[in-house]
């Protein structure tokens, strides 16, 4: 789980599981694309745990600036697994 070749295998479903496990946010797969404003339980502080957990899970460094610009969990997933 620590080399970059595993990055692509963090599927959206795995990501949802990681979000649930790491930050305790009870979301369904169909909620990942909704804007944070429509996710009442979302707290920007969760990003700290999420970034750390994503770096561990993907074995790659996450661009925090891009994560902060993301408006949905799906967008964060894109940053985590994208180029």
């Amino acid at each position: 789980m620590t080399d970059s070749s595993t990055a692509a295998v963090l599927s959206l479903d795995d990501f949802v599981t990681l979000v649930r496990d790491e930050i305790g946010l009870d979301i369904e797969p169909d909620q990942v694309a909704v804007d944070f404003d429509e996710l009442p339980d979302w707290d920007s502080l969760y990003l700290l745990k999420l970034v750390t957990a994503l770096e561990l899970a993907t074995g790659r460094k996450i661009a925090v600036g891009k994560v902060l610009e993301a408006r949905s969990l799906k967008a964060i997933h894109d940053v985590a697994v994208g180029g």
Binding site: L47, L48, V51, T52, E55, I62, V64, G65, L68
Partner: peptide
């Protein structure tokens, strides 16, 4: 703290 340095810097 075992947290991401860039997160402190940016967030």
């Amino acid at each position: 703290l075992g947290v991401n340095e860039e997160w402190i810097e940016v967030f």
